[in-house]
């Protein structure tokens, strides 16, 4: 099986996610960037699963999807909490504590 293309795609997605987390300032966009990171790991797992003819990778991907759903639920809740108190979700407004 030709695996270079999906692995490169996942590496590209991971890089986009890292850039998104570091550069974006919008709370919801940050959550989406984190999702992108996790999805790229899932893609890797599925590709390796096909390559090695070992279904363990697919099973792990399913576990990860379930756990990530819980994680994003909490993330959205925190963003909502911030929005209620400050009427903004920009994370660079979060500077009460420094150094």
């Amino acid at each position: 099986m030709y695996v270079a293309a999906p692995l490169l795609l996942s590496a590209f997605m991971f890089s986009c996610g890292v850039y998104g987390v570091l550069a974006r300032r919008h709370g919801v966009m940050l959550l989406m960037a984190v999702e992108l990171l996790i999805t790229s790991a899932n893609l890797n797992l599925i590709v390796f699963s096909q390559l090695l003819k070992n279904s363990l990778g697919n099973i792990i991907a399913l576990f990860i999807i379930a756990v990530t759903a819980a994680e994003v639920g909490i993330g959205i809740a925190i963003v909502m909490l911030l929005y209620r108190q400050r009427s903004t979700v920009a994370v660079d407004e979060l500077h009460l504590m420094k150094w």
Binding site: A41, N42, N44, F48, L52, G57
Partner: peptide, 9 residues
């Protein structure tokens, strides 16, 4: 997770 994927690979 990305690390785990590579360990598996």
């Amino acid at each position: 997770l990305y690390g785990i994927a590579f360990v598996f690979g």
